[in-house]
Amino acid sequence: MLSTLWNSNLGWVLLSTMTLGIAAGAIGCIAYWKRQNLMSDALSHAALPGVVIAFFILGEKNLLVIIIGAAISSLIGALFIQWITTSSRISEDSAMGMILAVFYGFGIMLLTIANRSAGGNQSGLDSFIFGQAAAMVRSDVITMLILALIVLFIVFIGFKEWKIFLFDQQFAGGIGLSVKGMNTLYTIVLVLTIVIGIQAVGVILMAALLIIPAVSARYWTQSFRTMILLSAVIGGLSGAIGTLISSYGRGLPTGPFIVVIGAGFFVLSLVFGKEKGILIHYVQYKLQRKNQLQGWKQEVGGR
């Protein structure tokens, strides 16, 4: 069964969504500790205009070109957010909310025009909204895999630099690490992860693949290294399982399934997680009260 899976297109698609999930899980941890989860949501929505414009320019759907278009669009969104935040009195979350809505609205407008144009409705551009892994061909998969591996390489090669940058930016600057450079690298890696995911997961739900694995992993560990690894595993499993389930029905979108599987992992973590999971927290609380009461009873002589 495994060999047939491997030979089919599905095997390759599974491999690529799993790698995407792993990369998103790892980057999601960095976003989590930068306290910038909404940023990933804003930037993934901001990718949509770039997708459609890339399609207009090329006249056909080529994933690499669309990814480049999406990345440019998303980076422009990031620059706008930064510009609004630093040069006006508008706060960062308002700026992100604005960019998210405006870029997404603009993208949908362009998409409607594209769908009305000749051949546009067969273009499969709609699949970029909710994701359609089944629509991916071999070359798409290879593009995704290579980019995801680049992202993972950047995260793991600079592991201790990321850690100090996230924990203590001032000290990082004090030992001569370029905080500005790290911020730029972070934005590039985040955008790269988002744009390689939009075909499989879609612009609306891509942020969930960045956020959910990281918050789930937080319930299991008190080590940053373990958190990144665990988040990557949860992201990878969500990607693979979600893709597998969505492939059973014709034309099912992949993104929602991936997100629902990820949410499943989150609920498991929330309840059973050993670090402040609900269950362990409750048991600890009960035990503590019991011990306290026993100690007290002994003290007052069992009366």
Binding site: W33, I164, F167, T221, Q222
Partner: peptide
């Protein structure tokens, strides 16, 4: 200036001085 909720231990923070 730092986030003390960050998942790491005392020894690890001190090691950062050597980075």
């Amino acid at each position: 200036a730092v986030d003390w909720d960050f998942p790491t231990d005392a020894l690890d923070v001190v090691t950062m001085g050597l980075y």
